[in-house]
Amino acid sequence: MDSYLPWVQKWLPGLSDFNPMHYVAYFILGLTVAFALGRRAGTWLGVLLNIAFCVLYGLSDEWHQSFVPKRSPDPLDLLHDGMGAAAASLLVFLIFSLVNRKKSKNYREG
């Protein structure tokens, strides 16, 4: 999986490893939480709630791994989980912002 690392480091300098499944899983979790938040997902408070929930879930997952044989908790995994959730939260926020902008009375095409 680290074969993608040099490409990803161009966008996220300082990243020491890259496991896309952490990003994908928590991106999907972030979308799910955004769906549960409804309209609130389109606010900055909703973004923060979404990320906080996903990071807390990731923290519980890392803690759980400390009890599983041949597994160990990894703070970098938690960072990657949070980044996936943040990407989903910000995407949902952007979509809400664009949709609300087009519905605004002050919006003009072109």
Rank of each mutant, 00 (worst) to 15 (best):
D2V: 04
D2K: 09
D2P: 07
S3W: 15
L5K: 05
P6G: 01
W7T: 12
W7Q: 11
V8C: 06
V8R: 02
Q9K: 14
Q9W: 04
Q9Y: 07
K10G: 13
W11E: 11
L12N: 09
G14T: 03
G14I: 00
L15S: 12
S16V: 15
S16W: 12
S16Q: 14
F18P: 05
M21F: 15
H22E: 08
Y23H: 15
V24A: 14
V24H: 10
V24W: 14
V24P: 02
F27T: 05
I28W: 10
I28K: 07
I28Q: 10
L31W: 04
V33W: 04
V33G: 01
A34I: 01
A34W: 03
A34R: 00
F35V: 13
A36W: 10
L37T: 03
A41M: 10
A41Y: 06
A41N: 05
G42D: 09
W44D: 09
V47R: 01
V47A: 07
V47Y: 03
V47G: 05
V47D: 00
L48P: 00
L48D: 07
L49S: 05
N50F: 02
N50P: 01
N50K: 01
N50H: 06
I51V: 14
A52G: 15
F53E: 06
C54W: 05
V55S: 00
Y57R: 12
G58A: 01
S60T: 15
D61Q: 11
D61S: 13
E62A: 00
E62L: 01
E62K: 07
H64C: 04
H64A: 07
Q65T: 10
Q65A: 06
S66Q: 12
F67I: 03
P69W: 09
R71A: 07
S72C: 01
D74F: 02
P75E: 02
P75N: 00
P75A: 10
L76S: 14
L76K: 11
L78S: 04
H80A: 14
M83R: 03
G84H: 02
A85R: 00
A86W: 11
A86E: 09
A88E: 04
A88C: 08
L90E: 03
L91R: 01
V92G: 02
I95V: 15
F96T: 07
F96D: 11
S97F: 03
L98H: 07
L98M: 10
V99D: 03
V99C: 06
N100G: 01
S104M: 04
K105H: 13
K105A: 15
N106T: 13
Y107S: 14
Y107L: 12
R108H: 12
E109I: 11
G110Q: 14
G110H: 12
